[in-house]
């Protein structure tokens, strides 16, 4: 199961990069980057997964004393939580700049943006 999830994550990264490299529409490139983002998060989460264990939340079935033997690695989860939030911030920034570029040039084709400054 971990291998399937990890392979999917790697494939999503590759698909995202392919989309970003072959599409020339700015919005499509941003969509592709967000797919690669999801793939990276998936890989990190599946690294933290240990087969046969449960989520890192203590309750009556997973007591504090038995936690070390019952839970999966919580650190990748904390990292990915951060990464998702930062990812949407970066996406919002890219979209805002796209709107600005469209306003100036009235096109979304990246090949039309040849100058250094708009």
């Amino acid at each position: 199961m971990v291998y399937i999830a990890m392979a999917t994550g790697f494939l999503l990264i590759l698909i995202g990069f392919y989309g970003a490299l072959t599409n020339r529409n700015l919005l499509r490139m941003i969509v592709a980057f967000s797919i690669a983002d999801t793939g990276i998060n998936l890989v990190i989460i599946s690294v933290g997964y240990l087969p046969g264990r449960t989520a890192p939340i203590l309750d009556t079935t997973v007591t504090a004393a038995a936690a070390a033997a019952r839970i999966i690695d919580p650190v990748p989860q904390a990292l990915v939580l951060t990464a998702i939030v930062i990812g949407v911030g970066v996406t919002a920034l890219m979209l805002a700049y796209t709107l600005k570029l469209y306003e100036k040039k009235r096109t979304l084709d990246i090949a039309k943006f040849t100058e250094l400054k708009w």
């Binding site: 199961m1 971990v2 999830a5 967000s34 999801t38 998060n41 989460i45 599946s46 933290g48 997964y49 264990r53 449960t54 989520a55 939340i57 999966i72 989860q77 990915v80 939580l81 998702i84 939030v85 990812g87 949407v88 996406t91 919002a92």
Partner: peptide, 19 residues
């Protein structure tokens, strides 16, 4: 499924909803 409910909530609310 990979036992990370926190991340699942974040992805559902932020990654798939807001973005």
């Amino acid at each position: 499924i990979l036992a990370s409910p926190d991340v699942a909530m974040t992805e559902a609310a932020i990654g798939s909803g807001l973005s």
